[in-house]
Design a protein around this nucleic acid. Structure first.
Lengths: 308, 308
DNA sequence: CATCGGTTTTGTCCACGACAAAATGCCGAA
DNA sequence: TTCGGCATTTTGTCGTGGACAAAACCGATG
């Protein structure tokens, strides 16, 4: 009959910011404006967020990434929010999830690390690197993202997936790293983008085509990208933007980088935040998906031949 | 004679937070208390930090990580701060940097990515994985950290180093991943710790000894670590803490995790933030350095034999 | 359909007070 | 000496509410 919830587990505002990605200022102003979240207060008047509210904030955060507005959804119940998310899940799932290996997805959900690693390795051997990335990893990553969005995955499960894929891709890329092929491509993300899989997938598509890729990983400041690109004899700078990246900021950052980069260095951008934004990005090659990466490479090579 | 600095390049408070890692609240309260930083204001009264002040804040940030107090150093000039940092560099350098491969360090500084990759690969082949990690990677990582601390490296150079080492270690670990050896070890870091090299180095030491390691990468919430460890038949949870991690918080977090973890699962912690803190961490095996990782493994195995 | 202006929404910034948590310094006991 | 408490200082984080720029939205016009 322990009906009373264990009250000691409550989050302070800093923990909520960390867990949801919503800045403290935003949490406070939402409380003022929309009446949610409505945390309890401790003896000193400090906010104490119960776990349910943190959970709901996580749902809201995901819906925001998909274009909803806080005023509309802060009032809704958790069930309604889940329903909205499920709609997105279905919309995306219809196109992509169908093509994903459900056995591997199960491994992620059930935390079967050894089986997941083996299954991925097997798929890689069977399909070859490029098809493995385009047909197995990418749909799986989308499915994992959607599942995580719907709260069906724990953080540790998403991490496990990301780590395993990294291990495999980095090995495979390293195994065929050529020397000195053209174009030379510098791959990285901007400081607010932490997702690394997009970069690795791009690298895995490009290296087998004979391009020389140098990845700086995530979170490189704009000025450092410019310096590294100009000083390292690069032909192309490639940036990756996940769905969570604010689209407007991506555009501004790209235009700024384009302006500061020597004209001879091409600028490529890929990921959900820049898809269908080609029109607003003169001088930037927007790479729509992984196959488009190869198209962009062909374009670059034929343009270079003509220029010679 | 372009003496006037280009005034348009000034950072707002959010950019400074991102570049220095100092929270906005802290930046404002330092200004109030110590008179530094002293940003200009734009037409709307918002802070505009000139690049020199951001640079100095970065120096201060590094000194804080090494135990200095803000009140003492906010008043100092950039030159004095650099001198303080140089002292730390020498102190650490005397012990460690001497043992590091200066040719490879030069590759990092000069941004010679191909040469760096080749040099690392060669060292790995020559030394074998464990000696490579202990004798090449670890000293090099320390040297890179110190150089970055002294401002001798760009962000992009540090990133490049980290990426190259990751590529190599992940390949090497993947190549000898056994199946089902004991102990089964779950490796990760807490949410505020973003450095991944410590984890990879530990994994590289352990896997050749026949241990089964599963890495969740960085930033796993405490509750997820507990769930993953308890649900995955693990014997040991291993956490890594870089020098930048607040020592006190590391202790609290470790004790909390220790309490929530089943007693049969051992808890290991390594990295600068927990070194020499064994006394305050009952129930936690503090791993002093990479060689101590092997000692800890031997201890675990002999303890298990005796228990059987 | 694309673009422009006006309106609403939304996130971020400001000031300054308060106070908990951490670091430091001091003192007495093992 | 070294260690463990205890008082004091330092330091970071949280609170409030007002302001306003930037973004999103919406409708009208080329």
């Amino acid at each position: 009959m322990n009906a009373a919830p264990p009250e000691e587990i409550a989050f302070n505002i800093a923990a909520v910011e960390r867990d949801t990605g919503l800045p403290k200022d935003t949490l406070r102003v939402w409380e003022r404006r929309y009446g949610f979240p409505a945390p309890a207060r401790d003896a000193h008047g400090e906010r104490q967020y119960p776990p349910e509210q943190v959970e709901k904030l996580r749902l809201i955060r995901r819906l925001l990434d998909h274009g909803h507005r806080p005023a509309k959804i802060c009032g809704a119940s958790s069930e309604e929010l889940m329903q909205l998310l499920a709609q997105h899940g279905r919309a995306a799932g219809a196109g992509e999830e169908g093509g994903c290996d459900t056995r591997l997805l199960e491994c992620v959900c059930l935390h079967r690390s050894a089986e997941l690693a083996a299954g991925l390795r097997q798929a890689l051997l069977k399909q070859g690197l490029q098809r493995f990335v385009a047909e197995t990893v990418a749909p799986l990553a989308t499915a994992v993202g959607e599942a995580w969005l719907r709260g069906e995955l724990e953080v540790s499960e998403e991490h496990l997936f990301s780590e395993q894929v990294q291990n495999l891709l980095r090995s495979a890329i390293g195994a065929q790293a050529g020397t000195g092929g053209r174009p030379r491509i510098l791959l990285t993300t901007l400081p607010d983008e932490v997702h690394v899989l997009g970069l690795l997938m791009a690298e895995a598509m490009l290296v087998p085509e004979g391009a020389s890729c140098v990845s700086l990983g995530t979170r490189t400041p704009l000025a450092d990208i410019r310096n590294a690109a100009a000083g390292g004899d690069f032909d192309i700078v490639g940036l990756s933007f996940s769905i969570a990246y604010p689209s407007r900021q991506a555009i501004d950052d790209l235009l700024e980088l384009r302006a500061s980069l020597p004209p001879r260095i091409a600028l490529w951008a890929g990921g959900a935040a820049v898809r269908d934004r080609q029109r607003r990005l003169p001088g930037v090659r927007v790479v729509g998906d992984l196959d488009d990466t190869l198209a962009a490479l062909r374009e670059w090579r034929s343009a270079r031949e003509n220029a010679d």
